[in-house]
Design a protein around this nucleic acid. Structure first.
Lengths: 189, 189
DNA sequence: ACGTCATTGTACCGGTCGGTACAATCTCTC
DNA sequence: GAGAGATTGTACCGACCGGTACAATGACGT
């Protein structure tokens, strides 16, 4: 349960889509204003720190969604396989089967990476470690689990890039299906 | 053998690094001028089309390097396994083991994607199809080869993102090693 | 030495950027 | 309905953006 006023959550979603679509530098205050229907007065009222604070809040908002819908289930579900399954469903749903791109991944490549490096590192780090933990519980050796988790997150990120590059959403679905299959069998040693 | 004057190739490399480091929008003419030591007069003399032509030329330059050092070997090497091995070595070398990011991948996520969508689609498309062709020749069924190729390129792209996000170059090396191992065995049907 | 053409530095353009200032308005409490 | 605080529109700022114009300089064949 997050104590964010619903209006603010909606606002962050809208601003997030602008950042997602145009990148940090490309998301001008004019675009953000047009998308939200708010003028600069309002935007700077809600985000006194300006564009940088907006981006930070948007990243935190996305991070919170993944924490609630992906990372926590991976860590907390008594059945690690169910947690992993949940991750794939949430991931496919979040990225709209490849229609959406990963804003945090885009920021990691962007010029903006230095501004948000802590948040970015944290997001991917927690994704990988929580997935690795679930894989370990499901029977993989810790080292193997860690590498598999890294690879799975990399495939997801890369597939989003390729799907966007090729304008072919199926690339993402195929990649998700393949990596899901690979993670399914418990360690066969 | 490409008939580009060496100075122009060097120029494209330098400009490419600016785009790679700052993205399309972030790479201002001031930055490009500082990196190359050329003023606007010279830049617009060599690239009358301005920044967009520079980016197009840079993408074509990178695409040419991959064509010569990755795609062609994949297609032409009589031993497909050797071609694939060559791809991994060239890829690790090009991306400096994760120190460098994929400019074309970054452009695919960027706001600039619409400007260069044809070139971007072509680059990734040829990478995937030439790798799939080599995998087919090495014994995989065409469908499986195609999916494997897609996945391999996705892992490479995603690992570059993660390596940058985590400031941990080893992520890229590990990913490359894993996917190399996966592609090695011929189809075991 | 000349003419030619490639190359360059510099000044300038209109437009947009992120950000600030501030007065007007809205909303809610007492 | 008075007052207070939250919210908003608008005008404005200096800086920088990509791009253009053009005169000065350079290199070079003749």
């Amino acid at each position: 349960m997050r104590r964010i006023a619903p209006e603010r959550a909606d606002l962050l979603s809208i601003i997030g889509e602008v950042f997602r679509e145009h990148g940090y530098e490309g998301a001008s205050l004019a675009l953000i204003g047009a998308a939200t229907g708010l003028g600069k007065g309002s935007l700077y009222h809600f985000f006194p720190g300006g564009k940088e604070e907006m981006a930070r809040a948007v990243i935190a908002h996305i991070d919170g969604w993944f924490e609630d819908n992906v990372f926590a289930p991976l860590r907390d579900n008594a059945d690690p396989r169910a947690g992993i399954e949940h991750m794939f469903e949430a991931t496919d749903s979040y990225f709209r089967s490849g229609r959406r791109v990963c804003l945090i991944g885009a920021f990691a490549l962007d010029d903006s990476r230095d501004l948000f490096s802590g948040q970015i590192r944290d997001y991917f780090g927690r994704w990988i470690t929580s997935l690795a933990e679930a894989l370990t519980r499901s029977g993989y050796r810790p080292g193997e689990a860690s590498e598999l988790a890294e690879e799975a997150v990399a495939v997801i990120q890369g597939a989003l890039t390729l799907a966007r590059a090729a304008s072919d959403l199926d690339i993402f679905s195929r990649a998700l299906r393949r990596v899901r299959m690979r993670l399914e069998p418990p360690a066969k040693i």
